[in-house]
Structures are given as C-alpha cells and as structure tokens.
Design a protein around this nucleic acid. Structure first.
Lengths: 189, 189, 189, 189
DNA sequence: TATGAATGAGAGTTCATTCAT
DNA sequence: CATGAATGAACTCTCATTCAT
C-alpha cells in the first residue's frame, strides 16, 4: 500500500463517516478535507468532483461487500448450502459493517443512484446473480424476480443493520439466526 | 377547503415531487416556489424553514398512510384476518402511492429522520402497533421485535414500490399476492 | 384624544422601544406591528414608509423635549437664570427620559439624520437658540459656536443618560448637580 | 506586510467608509466586497460574519486610537501635564481621524455595542484609565466617575469631530485650543 | 503532490410594501 | 379603518471548484 492509495482511502473514510452523520447535503468538501487531515484542493487530485467522490465511495463499498460474499463461496458444497450461506453472509456483513450498510442505503435512496452507477459494479454482482439464477432454475428457491429476492435479502439485511445501529432493535446471534431462517424459509421452495 | 390550506397543500405537493426527483439537496426553496406557482417568500408564511417544510411533509404522508390503514380496519373480523388485511393494505398503499413511498423511504434514510420526528406520529401508529402486539400475544404471528416486523412489512413494501416505480420490476396482482402470501407465511406462527 | 391618534401613538411607542433594543436594522415593520398589537398593513395608513415612521418618531420626541424646555422658561427672570435653568432642564429631561434620549442619540448617529430631518424641528428649536444667542451677545456665556454649545449641553446630557440606562454610571441628584455646575462654569464667561 | 493582512485591512477600510456613509443596515456584504475589490465569499475567510467584521473593525480602531494616545505619553513629565496632553491628544486624534471617530460613535450608539465588545479592548484602555485614576487621587482633577470623565473628553471630542466632518461647525486651531482649555478647566480641581 | 486563498453562483431566509377582502 | 396573505428584491452566508504558489 503506497502513500497515494493511503490518502485516497483516508479521504474515502472521512467521506463515509461524515455523510452517514450529516447526509450528502450536510457534508461540504472542506469538512471532508478537515476530517481527513488534508487540504481541500488535493481531493480534486484523487477525485474529479464531489459526485465522483461519492460514486467512488459507493463503488468501493459494494466491491468490499461482494468480495466478502465471494470469500465465503464454496463451489464444492450443494447449491442449497451455497445459497443459504450467501444469505447468511449478506446479513452478517451488513450487521458487522453498519457504516457501509448505512451509506449504501442512503445512496440507493438518493438521486445519486442511477442505472449507470450500478452498471459499474456488475462484474462483482454477476457471480452472485448467476448463483441465484441457478438456484431458481433447479427449484431450490422460489421463482421470484431478482429484484424481489434482492429486496428480501440484501435490503432487509441493510435495513436491520441500520435499525440496529440506531439503537431501535437489539440483535443478538440467536435473533439473527431466527431472521435468517425466516427469510430462507420464505424464499426456499 | 379554504384558500389557506389549499396553498399549503400545493406547496407540500410541489415539495414531494421535487424532492423525489432531485433529492433534499437538489431541491431549492426557489424551485419549490416556482413548481407551486407561488412566491419564494410565502413558503415561510406556512412553514418555519426548509427543514420544517420537509418534516411537515413527512408527517402529512405518514398521517395519510395511517388513515388509509385504519380505514381498512374491521374489528369484527378475526385477529388473523385483521393482521393479514393490514399487511395487504400496507403493500397496496405503497404500490398505489409510489411518490409517498419514495419520499418516506428517502426521508427515513436521511439525517432528517430522528426519534423526535417520529414521536409526532405516534398517535397514528399506536392502533396498528397494538394490533400487532395482540397478534403476537395470541400466538398468531411470531414473537419478533416490532422493528423487525416493520422492516419485513412496511419497509419491504416501500422498497418494492420504489423498485416498481423505477421500472426495475414488474408487479402484477398475481405477484403482489404471492409476495403478500410469502411475507404472511414468514410472520405467522 | 381620539382613536386615530391613539393608534398612531401606540405604533410610535412600539417603534421607540424596539429600535432602542434592536436598532433600526433589527426592527422589522412586522415586529413593530406585533409589539403595537396592530396589523402590518395599518402602519402604512399612519406613516408613508419605515423611514417616515422613524422620522416622525424623531420629530415627536424632539417636539416633546422642546416643549418640556419651554415649559420651564420664565421671561421675567434674568437671562443668566434663564440659561442656567435651560441647561439644567436639558440634563434633567434626558435623564428622566432615557428611552427618548437613547433614540435621539442613535438617530443622530445614523445616516437617517440629515439636514432635512432637522429643519422640520426648527420652529421648536428657534426660541432656545435665540435665547442662547442673546446670552452670548450680552457676555453671559462664552462666544462659542452654537454647535459646540449644543454638544457640551444637549449631547453630553444625552450621553450621560444613556450611560446611566446602561448601568455604566450611578447618577444621584448630588452628582447631577455637580455636573450641571461644571458645565455651567465651563460655558459662562 | 504580507498579502493576507493586506486584504484583511482593505476589507476593514472598505467597511469603515461604507458604514459611515450608509450605516450598518445600509451596508451589504456584497457592497463591502465591491468597494474592497474582492469577492463576496472571501470576506468570510477573514471574518466569521458581518457582526464579527464590524466588531473587529471597532476593535482595530480602538487599538489604533489607544496606540496614538500612548505614543504621546511621557512619564517624565508631571502628572498634570500628562493628563492635559492626554485630553489634547484625544481631541486631536478624533479631529484628525473623523472616519474613525464617526464609526466609533455610531458603533457605541448602536445595539452592536455591548459590554462584551468593550472588554476585549481593556488592555489598551487600562494604562489611560490608571493615569486618570492617579490624577484623581492626587487631587489634580475632580473626583468624578470614569464614565463622566470619558463623556466629557472622549465623547465630546468624537462628537465635535463628526460635527466638523458634517460641516456643521468650523474648527480652527484657535477654537480647538479654546475648547481643550475649557474642558481642562472644567475637569481640573 | 500539496496547499489554502480566492471565486462567484446560488442557497435559505427576511422584510418593506401592497392589496384583495 | 383594518387585516394579513402575498410579493419579490435583497440580504447574509455557504460551498464546489480553481489556481498561484
């Protein structure tokens, strides 16, 4: 890890924290610079604009999430176990990374979120999507549209993570397992 | 309906449309005024500030939603039917009012959403919460925290409504009924 | 006193209080209306504009002051006694009416104060000026320009009244008399 | 003198001129920027707000005035000569710097003038106050409250300077000396 | 690479004034 | 006479972005 990517990461981290706390609108570039301990100008060396910075942050968080999911992937297991593991990992990742979950959620709910911004992450998403497709074809899970499945897994997990971060619900391992079970039962055929 | 509440409503409507399209940050007060066909200054006659305007919009949408849910309420039916009807109505309301669903979702994902902003709506939410409580006690639905139940019903419905509005998924009556059935099966004991 | 002049007076009184507390700039017409217990619009029935309202207030305060001075006037006394009494009354009036003193001072220090605004009060000021002129000619007081004499009497008194109102100095009767004596000694020949 | 303090000074100078001409209320930040030949935004780099700018201007003028008075200070002279010189310098400084005198006067007559704003200048005022204190104790000048002495010297000088600037009175050296003599005679024991 | 002073457009908000009622 | 909703220009202040150093 060289100095360049260090500073880039520091800026991204500062942006993540500030936007989660104050929203897109409440997060001025000058504040990001102060939080990151760099000058305002240098941000424009690493990112084209504020919009670009936010998009890059989103992409990097999606990339990290997808890497975490792929790491748990085991092709030697049965497809049912693979899918089950996938859903479990999605839940656990969101709950373990509430800052990331919160940002992704806020981003997706905002006008920053366009088809274009998502197409860049297709490469990371593809393996997971194709796994889900296979499971549908083999009759392991219900034949629902991908979007519906994504909502019931990814989005539900992210929402619960945020509610947990906000102190609105207590989530112990037992409850998490129960929820994962409920979702799995709801999706499986 | 007198002129005063008319203009107030017009301003709220313009705010809803613009914020859904451009986000909180992308929606200037002057644009709201232009969209509503009023002067910029008069907004401050009806609302204290931009933040207040947004909060009032949120409150009014929550109130409308809750009224819609209460309208479908029938105490003569069995509790199971009541709960089932409630979940169905939540889905249908969100899908029928995508603008409201989208705004509520964006609001809840933003730093505007605080405990304080929700406490004002407690009066509308209470009857529904108590109905769910009763269902839990009578063993009709699973004994999950209210927040988890809210995520699996209200938030899932709102998310699907937005995905539908964004053209990401086709939701016909058959599919809606299937999803309602899935959620109901997941929650019932 | 009819209702019309009542309301006019109430508006003037509200303006006096608010401007002394918040300055010209900090005193909106709507606040004057609220303080006076009238609508914003009606002020424009009694006064042409905010500037006019402020000018009329200034004029009315100058008129009251001058009337107070003229009331103490006694042509049967010696000129020396008349002048001495005049200076004493100026002091006492300012100290007894700190709100008026404060406003006049703030007005005179502001760009509202023009030659034009003063010319309207010439009728009230004339008798006093001519009395001072006579005293100068008869060698009772020093032959200083009128402006210098006004500063050493009127303005000094107003300043002391304001300092007293602000709690910066304690002014008992003894001290007031001492100051009056000092000023008189300084001006007399 | 570096560029930073240059621009700060230019802004302060522009503010002084405009406020003397148009008052606090009539002096918009945008006008100050234009007069100073800078952008509107940069003022907020040097000053927190309009209020802060005005306070800083007041403080800098008080500081300059006090430095001018201290420069004329000569401890080797008799206390009587020191005091006399002080009063003379106050007069001459005010008459030589009518812009400063006018602003200080307008500021003191406005609601901007608070105890807090003055406490920041105590360090500059202290030496002069203690000199006056000593003179009172030694029976050189009358035992009047400091505020009264300040009014009769500082404020009278500032008022005369403004009247002179406004063309209301002609002040030649002879007259100035006469007035200084009158004030001195009034204060000395 | 890195800084931070500088820009200027545009934000939210205020307010003197008007006018239909 | 009286109201107060309505206007819209002008205000203070912010902020993404640039650029000389």
């Amino acid at each position: 890890m060289n100095k360049t990517s260090d500073k880039r990461s520091i800026i991204l981290g500062a942006t993540l924290r500030l936007i989660n706390e104050n929203g897109f609108h409440g997060t001025a570039m000058s504040k990001i610079a102060r939080e990151a301990g760099v000058s305002a100008g240098i941000i424009y060396h690493y990112f084209e604009s504020k919009d670009d910075l936010i998009l890059e942050l989103y992409n990097s968080l999606i990339k990290e999430l997808m890497n975490a999911l792929l790491k748990g992937f085991d092709n030697s297991k049965s497809l049912e176990d693979q899918i089950k593991k996938l859903f479990e990992d999605i839940f656990r990742y969101n709950l373990a990374n509430p800052q990331a979950a919160m940002f992704i959620r806020q981003y997706k709910a905002s006008p920053y979120y366009t088809h274009e911004s998502n197409s860049q992450n297709q490469q990371y998403i593809d393996p997971i999507v194709s796994c889900v497709q296979k499971a549908k074809k083999q009759g392991i899970i219900k034949d629902l549209p991908d979007t519906v499945i994504a909502v019931l897994t990814m989005d539900v997990a992210a929402l619960l993570a945020q509610r947990y971060s906000a102190g609105l619900v207590e989530l112990n391992d037992e409850l998490i397992n129960e929820i994962i079970g409920i979702i799995w039962d709801a999706l499986k055929k």
